[in-house]
Amino acid sequence: MSGSITYLEAIREAQYDALRNDPAVFLYGQDINTFGGAFKATKNLGKEFPGRVFDSPISEDAMVGLAIGAAIEGARPIVEMQFADFSSIGFNQIVNQAATLYWRTETHCPVTIRLPSGGTAGSGPFHSQSMEAIYAHYPGLVIVTPATVEDAYWMLLDSVALNDPVIYCEHKFLYYHLKSESTGERSLPIGKARIARPGRHATVVTYSAMVHDAIRAAEELQLDGYQIEVVDLRSVKPMDTDTILGSVARTGRLLAVGEAFPWGGVTAEVISRVASEGFHLLDAPPMRLNAKDTPIPYHPNLWKAHRPTVSSIAGALRSLLRY
């Protein structure tokens, strides 16, 4: 893909615009000020917005706690977790403090927590995780999983504008690889899925980086004469059940694909909704494809086999179409 702005630059751009547009916005995270963040998602922002980009101690619990307290006072903080995996240390503040605040006290909690998510080869068990399902399980949180440069930009701005806590899952694999001409126009709001590729023989419901693998698998199957529809969830919570059911109504076949661990999770939720609300639409048992049920391996040979790939998605689609 050619283009002049990467997924990572779109995230930086969105933060730049959020800081510029609203004095209530500030950034809090490890190494994000002069260093510009481990992935440079905040490069130069500390210089451009002095006194609004803060290096935090390595204290994910307290980082989120501080953001919640600040949000109560009307600020709109963006917290950068250095890796999604480390948000487990801030888990309590996220699910028990931020997520319950509005329900318990009718106080807004406009906190955006950025989670550099998902695998890249060589990152191993603790720098590769996808945490969206864990957070989606808790009431009171919005979970977004942008798959495009445009969504990376607009969904981050939309997240910051929401008066509820948002877990913004940005995929590290897309940081440098994914490019676009520009951040484009605002398209769909948070909560709406997108038909990333239209088709009529089977539906793949997926999100984040797997959208691109699913599209490539769909292109592979096109050579065999199959038109595969790919639905990009965009936000896993809320989940746009209507768009999923509409697609399954067209194709009669469903494959849910996710990079996260297999037990429960987003793909299970997709299957469960379609089975209970759209059973009559299905011509074949719905399928799901996830990572293996082991920690995420370090070596590229193992890593590639651990997560769904273009070929494993294509293989799953072939068995789904054979049924």
Binding site: G51, S59, M63, L66, I68, G69, A70, E73, Q93
Partner: peptide, 19 residues
């Protein structure tokens, strides 16, 4: 969850200082 309000109170003060 004990101790978890400490950073929240700190955050409220932090936001005021920023404003």
């Amino acid at each position: 969850h004990l101790g978890s309000l400490l950073s929240v109170v700190a955050g409220a003060l932090f936001a005021r200082r920023l404003k």
